[in-house]
């Protein structure tokens, strides 16, 4: 008798069925909330960078651009009031922020950032893979000790090295020069470690086959081993480029003394201002957009590799 009260196999109670039907919606709601929390700030950054200054203060959440486009923010030398360029939800886009940010030398900072990030990335690809290969494949006295020392440098917090590095660069006359930021950062322990681990996973037989065919070490490295290491090289390239693009502290110490050598992070911090400077929102946000855009484009173009890189290295955000 009691068994009849139990539901038959495959039949579920209405409550469970309701819960099951609701689960996807709960999931969607959570995902949409999470996505909005990331997207809304970005949309507002872009929208506010295109507003006249009074409109930023009066209607920071206005996000719909409406014609007339590219209005002037000044009329006869007088700043136009917020109500003339925004309705609270819509706004007339203006280029004031972009004009003033380019007057503030942004073009130069963009070039510097790209140049430094590219140089550091290319040099790291070369030196990290050479060093990683040597440590993985070539037996020489002190091999293990050198690797341990290189790994040991990863344990030292970067800020500790700031002042010694500043003093050494000063003595070498490399302050306020591209070389002062590129040379100290052209090889790094993490990259060497990453490459060494990868090269060790490549079977020895491949190199032995190369040796039989008469290839020397360099031919083997550049023609055979390096092309096989594309996943590791991609990961290294992405991390290096991103790290160099966003680097603030090293650049401040080495290049802070010459405005023409600044990078975008320094420039943005300059626009944000210190004591005594009021933040000019549209100018600052225009700078943020220009700083973010290249990285965003690179990310979307190489999204697959980014994810692979993170998977491969197992060290997201290094």
């Amino acid at each position: 008798m009691a068994a009849e009260a139990l539901p038959r196999l495959g039949e579920v109670s209405p409550v469970v069925r309701l819960v099951r039907r609701l689960v996807p919606y709960v999931g969607y709601t959570l995902l949409i909330t999470a996505a909005l929390s990331q997207i809304v700030p970005f949309v507002l950054t872009v929208a506010n960078s295109f507003k006249c200054l009074p409109a930023v203060s009066a209607a920071p959440i206005a996000f719909l651009p409406t014609p007339p486009f590219f209005v002037e923010c000044q009329a006869d030398g007088v700043t136009r009031s917020a109500s003339e360029t925004t309705s609270g939800i819509t706004f007339n886009p203006a280029l004031e922020g972009y004009q003033s940010v380019f007057e503030a030398n942004l073009g130069r900072w963009l070039f510097n950032t790209a140049f430094i990030a590219l140089a550091i990335m290319l040099l790291r690809l070369l030196f990290d893979s050479l060093a990683g290969y040597a440590l993985a494949r070539i037996r020489f006295p002190g091999n293990r000790i050198i690797f341990t020392i290189i790994l040991g440098t990863m344990m030292i917090p970067g800020v500790v090295l700031l002042i010694p590095r500043f003093i050494i660069l000063k003595q070498l006359g490399m302050l306020n020069a591209y070389s002062g930021i590129i040379i100290p950062l052209m090889a790094d322990a993490f990259g060497i470690f990453l490459m060494k681990q990868f090269f060790e996973s490549i079977p020895n037989e491949i190199e032995e086959a190369g040796q039989v065919d008469g290839a020397n070490r360099f031919i083997m490295f550049f023609r055979i081993i390096l092309p096989m290491a594309t996943p590791a090289l991609t990961a290294l390239a992405i991390f290096s480029f991103q790290g160099a693009w966003n680097n603030f502290l090293d650049v401040l110490i080495v290049l802070g003394g010459n405005q023409d050598l600044w990078t975008l992070p320094l420039g943005l911090s300059f626009l944000r201002g210190g004591s005594g400077r009021t933040l000019i929102w549209n100018e600052f946000l225009a700078g943020s957009v220009i700083t973010t855009l290249p990285m965003a484009i690179i990310f979307f173009a190489f999204q697959r590799y980014f994810v692979e890189g993170v998977n491969y290295s197992g060290l997201a955000g290094q």
Partner: peptide, 18 residues
């Protein structure tokens, strides 16, 4: 020379004696 993050910039300079 107008620098961002002025305090860090100066503290590094003070520590290095230059």
């Amino acid at each position: 020379n107008l620098v961002p993050d002025y305090d860090t910039f100066m503290q590094t300079g003070f520590a290095s004696g230059d």
